[in-house]
């Protein structure tokens, strides 16, 4: 038998021990803990959703979407005002926050000299702003509305202002990420042809960053659609019986209605609230799905 063969057999004996160190007690306990954590998170979430669906199931009908909320006839209460209100809020929130957010991000990323202390200060505080509790933005919106001279704040404009302030930092941060991801060479190529920085930003950088900006904006909006706290502060009604008709129209929003109905004692109203939660969840998931779709469809690799 050659030396090589002997050595090979020794190595085989040493390697083929019939057990794996990956299956040791410590490893298994650790793996178990990881599994439990995952299980816990998913199960709690599932239980919540399932119980809400079961509770709200009797109310999944057309009236849920087309009727107004009524305490007189709670069995046919609907969330027409809330759904329309939330959609209007989203529209005006986007109109307020998106241009401001993109412009601010472009300034910070493309024009500002990041070595200046002032710009550094702004950057640090943007990160902090994203973590400010949403209720604070509600208070801010009330103050701004008062400054603008509106005596009623529970209107589309007031709610949209609060939500826009809330998601502005998110939009700025995600837009900056998207703009930063556009390669330097793209800008250099444009500038070397005699384009100005402004032309380069407008014609090259921004169009290339749009998928990322859209994704960030939609995720911001899907956060805003579920917010109740700032809307409570702004003074949105928990129930109205007419459709929104303009920027100054009084409205309610789905989270506001859910909030007020879940505290009602009558079973029919609580049932309706559960159904409304599902409606809200579907809207949020729909927005997130749209964001994922845009990200995957338009994702570019350089």
């Amino acid at each position: 038998m050659s030396i090589a063969a002997t050595t090979a057999r020794e190595v085989t004996e040493r390697l083929a021990t019939g057990r794996s160190k990956d299956r040791g007690v410590g490893s298994m306990v650790f793996l178990g803990l990881l599994w439990f954590s995952l299980f816990f998170g998913v199960v709690v979430l599932l239980a919540l959703i399932v119980s809400t669906v079961i509770k709200g199931a009797p109310r999944f009908d057309g009236e849920l979407l087309t009727n107004y909320t009524s305490v007189v006839r709670p069995e046919t209460a609907g969330f027409r005002a809330g759904i329309l209100g939330s959609l209007w809020l989203m529209l005006f929130t986007a109109l307020l926050a998106v241009p401001l957010g993109i412009a601010a991000a472009l300034y910070l990323q493309e024009f500002a000299d990041s070595d200046r202390p002032w710009n550094r200060f702004v950057e640090v505080n943007l990160q902090n702003l994203a973590a400010v509790p949403s209720i604070v933005y509600g208070l801010l919106a009330v103050a701004v509305m008062a400054l603008l001279g509106f005596d009623r704040t529970g209107i589309v404009l007031g709610g949209a202002l609060a939500l826009a302030l809330l998601i502005l930092p998110v939009i700025i941060i995600t837009t900056r990420e998207a703009v930063r991801a556009v390669p330097r060479e793209m800008r250099d190529g444009s500038l070397a042809l005699g384009a100005t920085v402004w032309q380069t930003t407008w014609k090259q950088t921004l169009p290339s960053a749009i998928p990322g900006i859209a994704t960030g904006t939609i995720l911001g909006l899907s956060r805003a659609i579920g917010e109740a706290a700032p809307l409570v502060v702004v003074g949105l009604a928990s129930s109205v019986t007419f459709d929104p008709a303009g920027m100054l129209s009084q409205i309610t929003a789905l989270p506001m209605q859910i909030y007020s109905l879940t505290s009602q004692s009558r079973e029919e109203l609580r049932q309706a609230a559960s159904a409304a939660i599902i409606v809200l969840l579907v809207m949020v998931l729909g927005l997130n799905a749209l964001a994922i779709f845009i990200r995957n469809k338009f994702q570019r690799s350089w």
Binding site: E185, D188, L193
Partner: peptide, 14 residues
């Protein structure tokens, strides 16, 4: 830059 053009290391078409 309109008189003095530049071509870069990595092809960078728009």
């Amino acid at each position: 830059r309109t008189h003095i053009g530049m071509v870069f290391q990595k092809p960078n078409p728009f």
